[in-house]
Design a protein around this nucleic acid. Sequence first.
DNA 1: CTGATACGCGAAAACGTTTACGTAATTAAA
DNA 2: TTTAATTACGTAAACGTTTTCGCGTATCAG
Lengths: 335, 335
Amino acid sequence: MAEAVNIKRLAQELNISIATVSKALNDSYEISLKTKNRVWTLAKELNYTPNPAASNLRSNKTKTVAVVIPCVANNFFSLSIMGIEEIARQYGYHVLIYQTHENIEAEKAFTNSLLNGRVDGILTSVSSSEYNSEYYANLVKKIPLVFFDRVYENLDAVKVTTDDYDIAFQATEHLIESGCSKIAYLFGLENLPAGKARFAGYLDALKAHGIVAPEQLVVKYHDDEEFNLQQIKELLEAYKPDALFSSIEEFIIPAYCACKELGLQIPDDVKILSFSNLSTAKLLSPSLTTISQPAFEIGREAAKCLFKILNNKQLDDEQNIILKSVLTKRESTGC
Amino acid sequence: MAEAVNIKRLAQELNISIATVSKALNDSYEISLKTKNRVWTLAKELNYTPNPAASNLRSNKTKTVAVVIPCVANNFFSLSIMGIEEIARQYGYHVLIYQTHENIEAEKAFTNSLLNGRVDGILTSVSSSEYNSEYYANLVKKIPLVFFDRVYENLDAVKVTTDDYDIAFQATEHLIESGCSKIAYLFGLENLPAGKARFAGYLDALKAHGIVAPEQLVVKYHDDEEFNLQQIKELLEAYKPDALFSSIEEFIIPAYCACKELGLQIPDDVKILSFSNLSTAKLLSPSLTTISQPAFEIGREAAKCLFKILNNKQLDDEQNIILKSVLTKRESTGC
DNA sequence: CTGATACGCGAAAACGTTTACGTAATTAAA
DNA sequence: TTTAATTACGTAAACGTTTTCGCGTATCAG
């Protein structure tokens, strides 16, 4: 399509060898400043850019990382990608995107296909459908990998997460202090550490306040909007909880709809609180009390860690980076 | 890191030449079924995957496309990416992401850096900050490129857009029929065809109903949340419009906040309607009448077009694909 | 003036594929 | 039986880099 300006062309026009051109372009100490300048100016003039495939093949570096996540169209993940992309730009890396749609087979297929030198490293937030740590135990030996938010524990890999347990504890206390004693839990990510930590924080906060939590007050997430809605409606009707603690954003719409359909007033009849990165939380009717994770920063941190590893920089002691979530109290919990 | 299983290794173990192995892997007619099967089974056994860099270098095909967009963390674009990624998977392509942050220099830098064979094609939704069609006129000659939503016109390239003019006209009529006569316009994307078409639809609808639109009722978007909020507040106070037609999602939060701060009731004092792909539109207070673009389908269509081009399939006649947006009437316009 | 020491550069191999071309063996056509 | 065509495979070049190694020249100490 174009006129193919490569290193050979530069060498010919300057009457020097391609080795010299290559070294000059890479600012090698072997080349005199005079020659470097000749090369650089001609390269700029001809709009030369190195062929990535050739470069990758020879050097075994791709300057590319892969982001493997459940879904792009999600506030949390799109913000994470934004953070990752920003850091990648700074380091001169390219970013490949793969969506697993919570399918662990797709997850394996993608990550496996990345082991042949397509990328230098992987950033991933794993599928919630299953917890298959043997697979990842092998994977982390084969390629630099950083987990964020949805992680596998006990692996020799960097993990960037949030204070799920603490913030869930704190949020539950907020509900209790708001006068709630029958707090239902909308349970997501139950196979993953994040989901378990949130649930544990909820349970422990109840226990700390002498509240027993009947199992019937827990609704588990299914990948079926209508089903979730029905479950919540049944929960509300059968057990009349005075609060809903939603551990994932996906429960917000069904929760609000369920209340509306049953004629329950938020926050008077039932208070609602949810993990969420919705920018419109404050515009909801009523405005929603949220636990928002620093999605953008998580992406940035995870990317920074990966690039440090790829550049052989020392990772400051810790393999686990834990960022703080923010509890924003709004009308849905009576604030 | 691993034990490097390549074509040479396969050839050695099977006592055949690397050419035969390569052809067998690519299912060439030159190779007998018997040999192919030997190769295939060993390849699977050793978990062989071709080295992409070597393959790209030799064949000049990368099976990779780039998506260049203003920002990932946006409902419209994240849905588009989702659609693109889905189609890319079907065709066996990889997807690179680049964010321009509405910066036309970044846009040029990215697209230029993609011309050296890093990708086979580009999908882009261009920056709103400027309209620089000379640059793109050159670019489309150098690499297969498909525009979606935010396009450059009069170029020899496929464009996937929506019926911006028609739907804006229709939405404006909806406001008029709801009793509005002083409809303010919150103007976004003013440099781009989409923004112009939306504004034209609005103006023509007013004209068709004999309404003159004073210029003071138009507020232009700036990349400054606080500034937009102030502008809208001043507009509401100074000219007391009975409706706000927002041409982009970014105006929703300031519009709602402005009304709240001024004590204006939606929809009684002022009706609001906005282009938006917010999933929570129906949960806002009050629920928001929206024009939602089929973002996911736009991504899918754009990707399909690009892959058709890359596979030398005939594009069915048309270079312009226009999808329909959906006007969903809710409480914010009195429905 | 001789030997060592940088310095600046070039020759050539290598990375793992794909592919044009050649060739031997087999089959079909004459 | 001879010739042409087909089948199945191998040889080797090529893609555009990076990098090892070596060589000549200039510089400098002795």
